[in-house]
């Protein structure tokens, strides 16, 4: 499959939040205002695009079934989560050094990303779907963009719905779930798109 196909497919048709529920906790927690949703969304795109190729290389060259006579595949989860945690730390330090403005904008959200399921989920999907390097990069960018899109959309809806008369028991969390479900149904209408035809 080619690059653009995978980007479009993971961003719209198989959106990480709406069809796999990845990163749902932070998705619900930060979607109260558009500003915070935007910050975390950008951070997710950034970290996904960086960690996935690194995890791909580790999985391909280190965690093989026969490296120096050992089968290291059982270390996969620990390696992935360690790479993600250390990359998040590294990205945080680099941004702080070179772009203090971006750092203050993303600041508090970066550490949160370590335990965002979207990042680890992306890496695990890459293994189970046997992507190559290029497809992995495409999946990282597309998946991050899809997550960004969903969280900003929900935040915008929640900002407006504050002025509506929602039943008290449904306020806040309950409504956020129902809205996400409806958004999921709306995104499903994109299923008819044939990425192969678009890519040409």
């Amino acid at each position: 499959m080619d690059f653009i196909n995978i980007v479009i497919k993971t961003a719209f048709i198989e959106n990480l939040v709406l069809s796999y529920f990845f990163g749902m906790c932070s998705y619900l927690a930060v979607s109260k205002t558009v500003k915070t949703a935007f910050g975390l969304g950008m951070a997710v795109i950034f970290v996904l695009a960086i960690t996935m190729p690194i995890n791909w290389m580790i999985n391909e060259y280190l965690l093989t079934e026969d490296i120096m006579g050992m089968d290291l595949t059982f270390l996969r989860f620990i390696m992935f989560i360690a790479v993600i945690a250390s990359m998040v730390q590294l990205v945080e330090m680099v941004i702080e050094k070179f772009s203090p403005a971006l750092y203050t904008a993303l600041g508090i959200f970066l550490p949160l990303i370590t335990v965002n399921c979207a990042i680890l989920g992306g890496s695990l999907f890459m293994v189970s779907r046997e992507y190559n390097m290029m497809e992995t990069v495409a999946f990282g960018i597309g998946g991050g963009f899809g997550w960004f899109l969903a969280v900003v959309a929900l935040a915008a809806i929640r900002e407006k719905i504050r002025y509506s008369n929602v039943p008290p028991a449904l306020r806040g969390l309950g409504m956020a779930f129902i809205l996400t479900g409806l958004m999921g149904i709306a995104f499903m209408s994109l299923m008819g798109i044939d990425p192969a035809a678009l890519g040409q």
């Binding site: 796999y20 529920f21 956020a176 779930f177």
Partner: peptide, 9 residues
């Protein structure tokens, strides 16, 4: 998938 969210809501 969307229905899981509706059910939880």
């Amino acid at each position: 998938p969307a229905s899981a969210l509706l059910v939880i809501g």
